[in-house]
């Protein structure tokens, strides 16, 4: 009896399978839609946020600016008024509130430049970095310490004391030279220049010796090809 029933059911097996199929496909339609996580996963974001890889030191940045690194793109994430008061040379202003706007995307989401984000500290630039990293943008860096650190190290470097390691002196020399590049005038340098002008009398110019150059005789062209 049972066997006969089973046979009867199984004679509809293809119909049953087709119905299962349609139900499964229809189930896809009925699933509650949820927004898919876009950008990188939270685990990756956390790992990136912990990693100090994104930071660039002020010394490194100064070196790259002085060497006129063409791949450098400086982005100032402070507000417009601070940007107008003082900023790094050739920096572009994208206030933190405008980081996600359409106009800022070409600067942030690109592969050609090394973008350096900076603000007064690295606080706002870090926030901008997190947002952009979440969106999966590449080549973003943060100026460690921001403009305050820039001022303390490059613009106004601290003179090392005598008991410090020689490397500190080298660093100081570099920073001092860099600050001069960025337009800081040191009194001792200015004085020295003036002294040079005062004490060294102008030497009379030696008469120019005219050395007649022998012109090379042009050889007549001989049949080449």
């Amino acid at each position: 009896m049972l066997n006969r029933k089973l046979v009867k059911v199984l004679s509809f097996r293809y119909v049953i399978l087709a119905v299962v199929f349609v139900i499964l496909a229809g189930g896809l339609l009925l699933l509650p839609k949820h927004e898919k996580q876009e950008g990188i996963s939270p685990e990756n974001l956390l790992a990136n946020a912990f990693s100090p890889e994104r930071y660039i030191t002020t010394d490194e940045l100064a070196d790259r600016i002085i060497n006129q690194d063409p791949s450098l793109l400086l982005l100032d994430v402070r507000d417009e008024s601070s940007f107008k008061t003082y900023t790094l040379p050739n920096a572009i202003n994208i206030p933190l509130s405008k980081v996600l706007e359409e106009d800022s995307q070409p600067y942030l989401n690109q592969n050609a430049f090394d973008v350096i984000l900076f603000s007064n500290d690295n606080f706002h630039s870090d926030q901008a970095w997190i947002l952009c990293n979440r969106l999966g943008y590449k080549n973003l860096h943060v100026l460690k310490g921001g403009l305050n650190e820039w001022y303390n190290t490059i613009i106004n470097p601290k003179k090392p004391t005598e008991n410090m390691a020689s490397i500190e002196f080298e660093k100081y020399n570099f920073r001092k030279a860099a600050s001069m590049y960025f337009g800081v005038a040191y009194p001792e340098k200015v004085v020295q220049k003036a002294e040079v002008k005062k004490y060294v009398p102008k030497q009379p110019e030696a008469p120019k010796k005219v050395v007649p150059k022998k012109k090379k005789k042009k050889m007549p062209l001989e049949g080449g090809c």
């Binding site: 087709a18 199929f21 496909a25 896809l28 339609l29 699933l31």
Partner: peptide, 15 residues
């Protein structure tokens, strides 16, 4: 989802 659903129905009809 709609594409697969319609595709499934089309398949059953074709079968």
């Amino acid at each position: 989802y709609w594409f697969i659903f319609l595709f499934t129905i089309a398949a059953v009809i074709i079968f």
